[in-house]
């Protein structure tokens, strides 16, 4: 390989007549005069110097790096939650159920207002009021039964005995 390069350089040299025999040995690079005399002392000087202080922006970057990392982590988590967790599939609370019911009622009212006549609307309101009162009655009946059962429990009457008596 080395020979191939040298042959090639010889060919180049034929046109330019340089001292190609020394081409590999000759060093075309130079150094300032007495450069190597001073290397030892320059390195010794560097070894005795304190480590150079970082510029303020580098120092700040080093100091606040963990905080930036933490902030980025939290932002990432926050963004991930918003991206991947859909709001409408979360657990439904009584509050959200009520809000949805109110919204549906409003939509029905709008529909009735704009696409039905006054008699239909009155009928709807009547039926709605009746349904609501029935719900309240059912709820109060349930409450009464609970009160009676609690009273009997407090008095020490077993439910089985009561059932036999009835």
């Amino acid at each position: 390989m080395v020979q191939r390069i040298e042959i090639m350089l010889k060919l180049v040299a034929m046109n330019n007549k340089p001292n190609w025999e020394q081409l590999r040995k000759d060093n075309p690079f130079q150094v300032p005069d007495h450069y190597f005399d001073g290397v030892v002392s320059r390195v010794a000087d560097r070894l005795h110097q304190p480590a150079p202080a970082l510029p303020w922006y580098r120092a700040a970057s080093v100091r606040f790096k963990p905080y930036f990392a933490l902030a980025t982590l939290f932002l990432g988590i926050y963004a991930g939650i918003h991206l991947f967790v859909r709001k409408d599939v979360g657990p439904q609370t009584p509050g959200t159920q009520m809000a949805q019911t109110e919204q549906a009622d409003e939509q029905i009212m709008d529909l009735l207002l704009y696409s039905t006549d006054a008699i239909d609307l009155m009928n709807y309101e009547r039926v709605s009021a009746q349904t609501a009162s029935e719900a309240v009655e059912n709820a109060s009946a349930d409450d009464e039964a609970d009160v009676i059962i609690n009273y009997l429990m407090q008095e020490g009457i077993e439910v089985a005995t009561l059932a036999n008596a009835l």
Partner: peptide
Amino acid sequence: SDPYFSGDEIQLKLQ
């Protein structure tokens, strides 16, 4: 442009 490079044309081409 290096003042500390003194190679001739062939040296320059090789480098």
